[in-house]
Structure formats: C-alpha cells, structure tokens
Simulated assay, not measured.
Amino acid sequence: MFDKRKYIGLPADSPPKLIVVIDTEEEFDWSAEPDSEANHVSAMAHIDRVQNIFNEYGIHPCYVIDYPIASQPEGYRLLKQFAENGQCEIGAHLHPWVNPPFQEELSKPNTYPGNLPYALEREKLLILRDKITENFGLTPIAYKAGRYGFGPNTATIMQELGFNIDLSVCPPLDSRADGGPDYRRFDARPFWFGGSDCSILELPCTGGFVGWAGGAALPLFQVAQVFRKFKAPGILSRLGAVDRLMLSPEGFSSAEHIKLTRALYSQGVRTFTWSFHSPSVVPGNTNYVQDDAQLREFLDSFRRYFDFFFNELGGEASTPTRIRDFMESMA
C-alpha cells in the first residue's frame, strides 16, 4: 500500500508543528454491525464547542467529513461558516456503509474502504468529493480513510481524484481482527508516497510505542497482549517499559499526551496530529464522553495540551495544506 515511501526528516532546530484533524461523521454505535440508515448528525450543532477553543489558540483544524455530514445541512452548516471565515480546512473521510453507491455487502471488513473493489472505492470517494465541492464551494485535497482503512488501490484513486494529502496511517493501531490494516510498524514521521513520483504526502496520526524498551517495544507489547488477563500491558506501563499511546483526547490523559510528545520529539519527530471524532462533543455518542463531567475533562484536555505544545515545547500551529507547502519548499 505504501511502497517506495520516502520519509521526511526535518532539521533538529525546526519548531514542532501541530495540526488538528477531526473525523467528522455521523453518530452511530461503534460496537454494532454497520447500518446504512445510521446517518444522524445532530452533534454537529455543537461542534463550536471545540472550534471556539481552536480560535483561542489560532489553530485552523482540518475537518475530514463523510457523506452524512457533507450531504445534510444540519451536518455542514457550521463547518461552512468556519471555512468561509478562514478558520478551518475541509477534507474527505469515507465511511463506505453510509456513502453511495450501496453495492457491497454490509460487513465489518467492508467498513474499511480499502477492502472494497477498486471501482466501488473510487465511485464512493468521487461522489463524496463532489458532494463536498457542491456544498462548500471547494474541492478537498486531504483524505482520511474511514476506520484508517487505506487499501491497495487507495493511492491510485486519490491521485485520479486530485487528493495529494493522506491522513489515514495510524500507528500503532492493529485492526486485523475484523479485516482492517496493521500500522504497528509505522511511526509518526511524515513521508511521501504514491506511484513513481511519490506525490502524496502522508501525515500520520501521532501515536507509537514509548518507553525504555526501545526497539524491543513491539515484541514485548505483543507478549504482554497474550497475558492480558494478568494485566501484563498495565504492568509494563507502570514499569515504564512500553506504553501504546495516541495523541488524542479520546482514551488518553494529558500526562500521556505530554509523555508521547516528549518521546517522539526526542526521536526527531517535528509534526504532530491531535485527532478525535466529532460526535464526542456531545455526551452519549462515544465511549469517551458519556456525561457532562467527561465532556468538561475532554475539552479541558485540549487547553492543557495546547498550552504545553505552544508554551513549553515552543511549537507552532499548522494545517495539512500548509505543511505540504512547507515540505515542498524543502524538496
């Protein structure tokens, strides 16, 4: 899928750059079987809860939006205002089970768009791209596969449809259990890929294995997973040997955000992605935000991390398109 990838090394004195990517999507039961009728987008009436925080810090987030968001005024009304005011970027996010045409069998493996046949994956992304263009007056160039489901045909399809930034890689996620990708051997560094010219920029989700185990972290974590009933992963974490962390306010604490960032920064990483799902802005939609107290903690974690990143780490806010321009200027 990512043959011939060319990793990008930035100078050690480069200020770290932060982008925010929101998987902007319908509300649905993540544990249930896929349902093409589950396309409600009521949470989007409250997306300003996070946008107001971004405005405080001068951050222009990238909302990668799927078909229920792009096709329903309730889903895109506020986002269109933000985009017209120059406060955000808009990308595409393909959830196949709620994105026409509906030709595939509804199954967990088919919720990963990269598992679909080439023609169907292409047609779904084309329809999504055109719907975004119709309702926003702009054509997206950034893409994030639903469920991080990048497949063997995705790069070709992206190039054919004018996408040149991908946000799908999610280290250290392993979704093979229900037919998804395995990103455990990827890391947080950006890279060029796609055909002979490597013209697509990959900006991975920020995640990884951190701890004193170093290069042995992945095999050690795999062994710990075998002994999960004995709480082996937690023991390794408390010992500082290995933690599997992501830069997300969903399921990870502020201490873990800072721990991950410091570890990756010391390894030379200079691009960081803060990511989450839009339904989390309303309690009850995701496992991470079930009540008002959890919502307050969710939102407070944004400010804690941004204060750390901009004040202590000396970082800068950026966007996927601005980072692409920056990378091209260095080539």
Results as ranks from 00 to 15, higher is better:
Q267D: 12
Y288T: 05
I47Q: 01
L106A: 12
G179C: 00
F272H: 05
E105F: 00
Y67P: 05
E123K: 07
G151S: 05
P11I: 08
S199A: 14
G251N: 02
S107M: 07
W30E: 13
V64H: 08
G315T: 02
H93F: 05
E89G: 03
A43W: 07
V41I: 08
K229P: 04
V41R: 04
W274Q: 06
V242R: 01
W212N: 14
V282D: 04
S254F: 12
E84F: 04
A119S: 14
G162C: 11
S175T: 10
L245S: 10
I157A: 04
Y143H: 15
S168W: 04
V289M: 09
H46R: 12
M1D: 14
P283T: 12
V41T: 11
D197L: 13
F310Y: 14
N287E: 14
Y57C: 03
D35C: 11
F136M: 00
E25D: 11
V242L: 08
A216Q: 13
E27L: 07
A119D: 15
D174E: 03
N285H: 15
V20Q: 06
K108A: 11
N285Q: 12
V210D: 00
A317M: 09
L167H: 03
N287D: 15
F309I: 14
G180D: 01
E297W: 04
I47H: 01
H60Y: 09
T271S: 09
V50E: 02
S168V: 05
L313C: 08
V223W: 12
F186K: 03
L126R: 11
L10D: 03
R322T: 11
P249C: 06
H60L: 13
I90M: 05
A70D: 02
F82W: 13
F227R: 01
Q159S: 12
T206S: 15
N311M: 10
A155T: 06
N110F: 09
A45C: 01
P320N: 10
C205N: 15
A155P: 03
H40Y: 09
L138N: 08
V98D: 07
A241W: 13
H46I: 04
M327E: 10
S196W: 05
G146V: 10
L220E: 05
T139I: 00
A217C: 07
G86L: 10
T271C: 13
A12K: 14
L245N: 08
S253W: 06
I157Q: 05
A317E: 06
I8E: 06
